[in-house]
Design a protein around this nucleic acid. Sequence first.
DNA 1: CTATGGCACGGATT
DNA 2: AATCCGTGCCATAG
Length: 470
Amino acid sequence: MLQRQTTGLRPLTTAHLAQTMTLLSLTTEELQQEIDSELASNPALEMVEERRCPTCHRLLTDPGKCPVCSLPANLNSEEPVVFLSPREEFISRKDYVDNTMDDEPFAPEVEELPAYVLKQIAPDLDPNQRALAAYLLTHLDEDGLLTTTLIEVSRYTHVPISEVEKVKRLIQLADPVGVGSSTPQEALLVQLEVLKETHDTVPAAAERCIREGMDQLSHHQYPELAHKFDVPVKQITLAAQFISENLYPFPARAHWGDMRQPAHEETQVYHQPDILINYLNDDPTKPLIVEIIMPISGTLQVNPMFKQAIKEASPETKPDLKGDLEKASLFVKCLQQRNHTMERLLMRVVSLQREFILHGEKYLKPVTRAQISREMEVHESTISRAVANKAVQLPNRRIVPLSEFFDRSLNIRSVLKEIIEGEPKPYSDSDLVELLSENGFNVARRTVAKYRAIEGILPAHLRKAMAKGK
DNA sequence: CTATGGCACGGATT
DNA sequence: AATCCGTGCCATAG
């Protein structure tokens, strides 16, 4: 008995820390799930009715005053206003995906992709193959790409690889074409193949570009490709245009503009922002309003009735109920702590990076998480967790990861881009070192090259070729 | 000979 | 403790 009590209490303190840390690193959406499940499983937890600001109708987390309306009317402070903004209409990512699914040409109903594909190819399969196909189709990611390797599939299902390949091939040819490929590259090739049969306008260089020059292709490094294959740049750009207009590296996605980002898989594309930054009333002369989105619309608290109920509970159920109570108050506490940390963090970061938020990447100050942690007197890892996996919507509607606020070189890269964009003649890397130092940035020649690579900017001699080509 | 990319090392950051 | 980033040195291409 005594044993049980101590083991029941001890972990609580460590649990507190652990839980706070996990909550901190969660995105709004994940937090919503966490709260939902906690709310459902723990009777001691309750959500009090929503409160709205009487004037602006904004949902409030605190019973107190509305953080926006209570501002002095003629506020002109440089300091941002940071507050939690509860969102009942917060769209979870799932909903978001479902919505886009409706627009997809290949989903007549709410049918799942695997089922949809299987239906198409089922007639051509014998029962064994069908099982194999089903297995393969359950290992697709949301982009329609295969998440396992053929070898693994073969090992797991005890089917020879050649057979697996056959079935995979059938899947790839089904609609959406290319689904079930292992890489975007493979998907593109299959699509190209199919298109060739019907269209005769497929650029000759397209296949080679995908097969041998995928890397350069995704970086827009056309002159390099032209050089590699020893063909005119024109041909390459034509092929690239064709590819970006007609092919989809991620078969399950509705569309894909141009070949900019997908160089590395899982590029964080459209994120639900976890934090919104805007001008008050969209007026650029007003201070910045920072909303940290909370996925719920009321205030979470321990149910007072539950405390009462415990006193009257029978001795057998009492310990259980008490446990629930502990858990509930712990959860509320952790949540508050998370929110508090986020508020302080955002307050500090936004006022530090005001120029960046207002005027763009050029003005980003290189700040490290460590610095902020010292100022806030919390552990570095706390900041790391708070920053991780969060997305911010800036006043110009761009959604960027919160970690971008801590990018040490973004400002230099931005200036670099600017210089190159307006350059009369292609500057060499060492020229660029000069020009950058005039702007107050001292970096090594080698580093300029690295930045160029990051930004996908071609080396000088190739930029020259590009200019001529146009 | 000049301009770049690759590799690898050390120090900072997470 | 693991990872990222800036840099120097060297090989290679033009």
